[in-house]
């Protein structure tokens, strides 16, 4: 039972492999024939095109190889920045005076009740965001959800004895943070990080699907969007399925890893590599 709930070495290795693979993908793409159009339009999978071609003769497999680092890259970077921002605000709120932190929290309350999809939609139509704008947008609409959680965690950690002693002992705030507080809250941070990756991937795919991201940015969502016109023909098999499967698999991976990580933290089991 208990073993079942832990993160097993195999999984960690898988994740490491996965990450390595991602980093190598751009290199692979460089050696591929390129995401070129051809006269071979809507071709079914064959030896030449393993996953077939789309309506302007671009190779689906190449498309996927380009879209994967794009989508995941955006998700990871956006998640990282979101977390950094919310940590910053979380620490600020936990350490600032009552009035100031009350004000910030009130502001966050307001932000939280704005339906963010509507805002994202409005802004993206305006920007037709490429990679950078997309990350900014995701960070801007994601950071405030964590501040309350992080504030509670930091308050708890900052009032612990080891931190107080260190503080009284003349250590700098930075030292206290990095040596005592951050390691203690890291499980929470990792949990939030995974959640954010998932959210960002979902949003990126969603906006790509709506066709309002920069069209030069190939993402899983934009590939799915391209396939919609062919649902009534057989071509959906190779146009729709590959990007959809990869997207769902990635989201599923984030979710199960997150769940396992949570259990690992709760049961206090060790994470062995």
């Amino acid at each position: 039972m208990a073993e079942n709930r832990m993160i097993r070495p195999v999984q960690v290795k898988l994740i490491v492999l996965f990450t390595l693979g991602l980093c190598l993908l751009p290199a692979v793409v460089y050696f591929l024939p390129g995401y070129q159009t051809s006269l071979d339009t809507l071709a079914a999978p064959s030896l030449e095109h393993w996953l077939g071609t789309n309506d302007i003769g671009q190779d689906i497999l190449t498309g996927l190889l380009i879209a994967t680092p794009n989508t995941i890259g955006i998700a990871v970077i956006a998640a990282l920045l979101t977390l950094l921002l919310s940590i910053g605000v979380g620490i600020f709120v936990a350490t600032a005076g009552r009035k100031l932190s009350g004000l910030v929290l009130r502001f966050i309350d307001i932000l939280q009740s704005i339906p963010s999809i509507l805002l994202i939609l409005l802004v993206s139509v305006w920007l037709s965001p490429g990679m950078i704008a997309l990350v900014v947008l995701l960070v801007a609409t994601g950071w405030y959800d964590d501040v309350r959680v992080l504030r509670a965690v930091f308050l708890r950690e900052l009032t612990r004895e080891n931190v107080r002693y260190a503080s009284i002992g003349g250590e700098s705030g930075y030292y206290c943070m990095t040596v005592h507080v951050l390691p203690a809250v890291s499980p929470v941070l990792v949990g939030l990080f995974i959640q954010h990756i998932r959210r960002a991937a979902l949003m990126t795919a969603g906006l790509g699907f709506l066709g309002i991201t920069d069209t030069r940015l190939v993402t899983w969502g934009s590939m799915i969007q391209d396939s919609l016109n062919y649902l009534y023909t057989d071509a959906w098999l190779w146009l729709l399925l590959p990007p959809t499967l990869v997207l769902c698999l990635f989201l599923w991976g984030c979710l199960t890893f997150g769940q396992r990580f949570e259990r690992y933290v709760m049961t206090g089991a060790r994470l062995s590599v």
Binding site: L202, A205, G206, F209, I224, L228, L231, W236, L240, T244, L247, C248, L249, L251, W252, L255, T256, Q259
Partner: peptide
């Protein structure tokens, strides 16, 4: 449910439609 949670709403909609 974890599997279901991994399907974005538009994927679910396209799947049902298909």
């Amino acid at each position: 449910m974890t599997l279901l949670a991994s399907l974005p709403p538009f994927v679910m909609a396209i799947g049902l439609l298909l």
